[in-house]
Design a binder for these strands. Structure first.
Lengths: 216, 216
DNA sequence: GAGCATACCTACTCGTGCGTAAGGTTACGC
DNA sequence: GCGTAACCTTACGCACGAGTAGGTATGCTC
């Protein structure tokens, strides 16, 4: 029997699709199932079924379960990073960079909610992938820290790198958390969420840049 | 054969301990193994071995794997929430409440790093527990939002509940993220991390309270 | 219109790990 | 000092799911 006329994935798939197309369908299904069940609880059978295909096809195209998960991670991760990068290069002042980066970030997350769930909720905990996930975050933190640092320098102020790092970490964490919230709230508007995040980030940062600090 | 003289858990355990003690040892081991491996990859055998006990004991005392995980969640979660609550009640001004809450939070996380890893990195993704985890965060967000709201009211300003909610979410997320960073950096000082977080949170919040907002 | 590559299937094997049955051993009350 | 309850064990059954073997259909090329 060939691939059924209508798969669960929605798009009615007729038999015999070219490899590139099927691979994308499989990745879509994999992301969906991984995000719902978690890496281990997700079964290759369910992924195959969701894609409207039989299991050996998945193995033939994307390899083992781990490799499949990595492929998901890669696709969703680069989608996100590239979208952000593309927006950031078009801006020059620090606040414009931050704003456009945030907007791109929340837009992509809003459009691919379970992709974000896989990236953020799954990869982080599961041991074989935690490293890759942490590395991606590290890069984001680095970039944000650099932006903050440049903004500081422009104002003639100097702050230790560690401080910058920690603050960047907090900002990235806040964004991730809001993204997570966004992923669970279909009614929420990505752009508005980005604005709210920008308020927290920029005003908080702005004060710090002015040399004000809070002390117990 | 009885429980070995020296278990992997460190404390040399002689045979025949009272139930309450063994249960705590098991929970310690469970948290440790769950945090290292993730829920599914962790095996009951490994947990039992780590506790220096045989598997059926774990089942006799703490029940199935899911129940065991829930028990871990419960212990670590209440430990955290109670520590924070105890600190917050002793303060009255909003910034003191926030500060003492944050300090308690980072102190507990610093002292029980893998407890945090289980709570935050594991429970969040694995379907059966995501709900409980989200609920706990929800409570935290609610409390923070309330604190912000009171601070606002004291300054005669009024903000829509949703806005408060989102900002609280961002602050909680930033804290979680720093906690996560703390869990991976044994050299870091919880109190200092709390101070840095307080700076981001309070200065950011402070500006918002003054009515300032950032606009694209 | 024969050949060949590609897309696709059904139907297995086999390891791993949850959960349990059935039976030893120690401490404590009386 | 002895029964009994609590503590603890070894050794298994069994299900589930990753990965594979081997075979069938389809369409493209010359």
């Amino acid at each position: 029997m060939l691939a059924r006329v209508t798969a669960v994935s929605g798009t009615p798939t007729f038999k015999r699709l070219p490899r590139a197309v099927r691979e994308q369908q499989m990745l879509d299904s994999a992301v969906r199932v991984f995000s719902r069940r978690g890496f281990h609880a997700a079964s290759m059978d369910e992924i195959a079924e969701d894609a409207g295909i039989s299991k050996p096809m998945v193995y033939a195209y994307l390899g083992t379960k781990e490799e499949l998960f990595v492929a998901c991670l890669q696709r969703e991760g680069t989608r996100l990073l590239e979208a952000i990068a593309a927006e950031v290069v078009g801006a020059d002042t620090p606040d414009q960079q931050l704003w456009r980066g945030l907007r791109a970030f929340f837009t992509v997350v809003g459009a691919h909610r379970d992709g974000w769930a896989v990236l953020y909720r799954q990869a982080r905990g599961q041991q074989p992938f935690a490293g890759a996930s942490a590395e991606m975050r590290e890069r984001m933190v680095e970039v944000v820290a650099m932006m903050l640092g440049r903004a500081l320098a422009a104002q003639g102020r100097e702050v230790r790198d560690t401080e910058l790092q920690v603050m960047a970490y907090a900002l990235v964490g806040a964004s991730e958390s809001l993204a997570d919230w966004l992923a669970d709230h279909p009614e929420a508007d990505p752009e508005k969420t980005a604005t709210q995040m920008m308020n927290v980030a920029w005003l908080g940062a702005g004060q710090l840049l002015q040399g004000e600090t809070w002390t117990p």
